[in-house]
């Protein structure tokens, strides 16, 4: 549809062929009845390989839309997106996704859910089983292999969804408010586990959230988006040197400052969205 993205020079520019390059992306929702809604406008963003980037913004700012476009789930209307040098045209196993609603196959057990993606890769049956078990253990679900999703709590469902996505070893992990439906204790535990998994595996993570603290805690960099139409308002570095433990991070001065700074940026947009964002 369009030419490969030329890397935009700047602090966050990725080396050619690696990372994710988003160039001048626009997107308009065209409902069958009613006026089209401009969701994204001229978004450019470069994400380095193995970087953890949060997309932060008020509800309805198009951050999930941007994630879906990177996933290739919706056709790109304007601009281009490339992942590790390949132009995105369709979904693919190089980009795993985790949704807020878990999106587990309810008719499959835990292990069948995790095996689904593995079997698509054409691995031998034994290898599929071994890997599935490895990821079940990784997310602490040993003993629940044969449970159906309807028998699990929200936190456990999300662990299954994460294990299912990780099991196929995607280079990029797309997360759409993955902990938004969980209670706050479970959410804290899951955030820690996600960080520890990410540190051990070579993955780029794009994490959509409207929770400022979550974004600061998890991400190397936070892209703040404006109210509709979504644009990148600011890119804020949130990598804290030294602190490995998140309990330590949240007590640090740097963390408090970053949360304050981002909160101010987001609040302006939330107010704008509340004031004039409604059609």
């Amino acid at each position: 549809m369009s030419a490969p993205a030329t890397a935009v020079p700047g602090a966050g520019a990725a080396a050619p062929g690696t990372g994710i390059s988003i160039s001048r992306v626009g997107y308009e929702y065209r409902p069958p009845r009613g006026r089209p809604v401009l969701a994204l406008e001229n978004i450019s963003l470069d994400i380095k390989d193995r970087e953890f980037v949060a997309l932060l913004g008020p509800s309805g700012c198009g951050k999930s839309t941007l994630l879906y476009l990177i996933g290739g789930f919706m056709p790109l209307q304007q601009g281009s997106i490339s992942v590790n040098g390949r132009i995105v045209t369709a979904p693919g196993p190089d980009r795993g996704i985790v949704f807020q609603s878990f999106a587990l196959f309810p008719w499959k057990t835990v292990i069948q859910n995790i095996l689904y993606g593995l079997e698509k890769r054409g691995l031998p049956r034994e290898e599929c089983r071994r890997r599935a078990q490895h990821y079940i253990d990784l997310v602490h679900l040993r003993g629940f292999e044969d449970s159906y999703p309807s028998q699990l709590s929200g936190g456990m469902k999300q662990r299954v969804a994460i294990a299912r996505t990780l099991a196929t070893e995607p280079g990029t992990l797309l997360m759409d408010e993955p902990f938004g439906a969980l209670d706050s204790q479970t959410r804290t535990i899951m955030q820690d586990e996600l960080l520890s998994i990410w540190r051990r595996s070579p993955m780029t993570v794009i994490f959509v959230t409207h929770d400022v603290r979550e974004a600061v805690l998890l991400a190397d960099r936070v892209a703040v988006m404006t109210a509709r139409p979504g644009r990148i308002k600011a890119l804020v570095d949130t990598r804290f040197s030294g602190a490995a433990d998140s309990a330590e991070v949240v007590r640090s001065r740097e963390y408090a400052d970053a949360v304050d700074h981002l909160w101010t940026l987001v609040r302006e947009e939330a107010v704008a969205a509340g004031a004039g964002g409604r059609p």
């Binding site: 879906y68 996933g71 290739g72 789930f73 369709a90 979904p91 693919g92 196993p93 980009r95 795993g96 996704i97 949704f99 609603s101 999106a103 196959f105 689904y116 993606g117 698509k120 890769r121 299912r164 996505t165 196929t168």
Partner: peptide, 12 residues
Amino acid sequence: DRTLLWTARSLG
């Protein structure tokens, strides 16, 4: 649910 369809597509 479209998220089920998208998940399956992204899993190959």
